Amino acid sequence: MILLILGIALWVGAHLFKRLAPGQRASMGSAGKGIMAVAILAGLVLIVIGYRGAAFIPVWTPPAFMVHINNLLMIVAVFVYGMSATKGRLRGKLRHPQLTAVKIWAVAHLLVNGDLASIILFGAMLAWAVVEVILINRTEDWVRPEPGPAKKDILLVVITVAMFAIITAIHAWLGVWPFPG
């Protein structure tokens, strides 16, 4: 559990550093991007190792139907995340599509995982995304981009389905089948 918590702290700290200490981050110059990228990657590695190695400590037992809600929310999360790169009509509907997707992802996983490690991991990611949005909104103005062609939104739907299939395959490979039997 210690590796999980250290990984989360490194991930969150590296992500928030630019917002909480902009002067220090700016003084690091372009080398700072590399340092932060390494810190984020190291945090992610520690999160994966820590989560996979954490003891299963049950806190609550999610009802079976939550799996369906999780899967629906995950499709939405993948779609919303993809909106950050879209050039279609949906472009600019959300100010923070990636962080919104992280929030949806975290809530979806909290609904189906009642163990302590999951609550720590997904709860921390939800809290980080909320804090990140608040800090960005306080410090940066947003100019809503102009919408693009609708065909780009159709492409987003196709990519969402493909990405959801890939994510499902990765979960299956890791031994977690995300669909009820």
Rank of each mutant, 00 (worst) to 15 (best):
W128G: 07
I49L: 11
V48I: 13
I120C: 01
V67A: 15
V59G: 02
A77N: 00
G92Y: 03
F122S: 02
R89K: 08
I159D: 09
A9T: 10
R138E: 02
F79D: 03
I49K: 09
D153V: 01
L110T: 03
A55Q: 11
P178C: 01
A101E: 04
I8F: 04
L41S: 14
L121F: 13
W173K: 12
I159Y: 14
A165D: 04
M28N: 02
S118T: 00
L111D: 01
A101V: 02
M125W: 11
V59W: 05
Y51I: 05
V143I: 06
W142Q: 00
H171Y: 07
A85T: 10
V80I: 00
L46Y: 12
L174A: 14
L99I: 04
L156V: 03
A42N: 01
D141Y: 11
I40T: 03
I69P: 13
R25T: 08
V176D: 09
G13Y: 12
M83K: 06
Q98A: 13
F122K: 02
A106K: 07
V48W: 13
K18M: 10
A14V: 02
M163G: 14
I166G: 14
V45S: 03
F65D: 05
A54R: 08
F65C: 02
E140C: 08
V38K: 02
R19S: 15
L10S: 05
V76C: 04
V176N: 10
A106V: 05
R25Y: 13
V78H: 02
L111S: 01
W142E: 04
Y51M: 08
V133W: 03
L116E: 01
L155E: 06
A42F: 01
R144H: 07
H68K: 07
G123S: 01
L41R: 14
G13W: 14
G50L: 02
M83N: 05
V176R: 07
R52W: 14
T160Q: 10
W11M: 11
A37S: 11
N137W: 00
A14L: 05
I120L: 11
L72M: 09
P58F: 09
M74N: 15
L46G: 07
I119Y: 15
H171D: 10
V112A: 02
G148N: 08
I166H: 12
L94A: 11
F56C: 12
V76L: 09
G23L: 04
L73I: 12
L116T: 05
I136S: 04
F79W: 11
L116Y: 00
I8G: 01
D115G: 13
G148S: 07
G92L: 01
V80R: 00
V130N: 07
I136G: 05
P63Q: 00
I104A: 00
A26P: 05
L135G: 13
M66K: 01
N71T: 09
G7D: 06
A127D: 00
I35V: 09
D153H: 03
I57Y: 14
I104P: 01
V157G: 04
R91E: 00
T139N: 15
A169F: 12
V80S: 02
V130I: 13
I35W: 06
S84Q: 09
P63F: 03
G82Q: 05
N113I: 00
L110N: 03
A37P: 09
V12T: 02
G34T: 05
A172R: 14
P22K: 01
K151I: 15
V176I: 10
I69L: 10
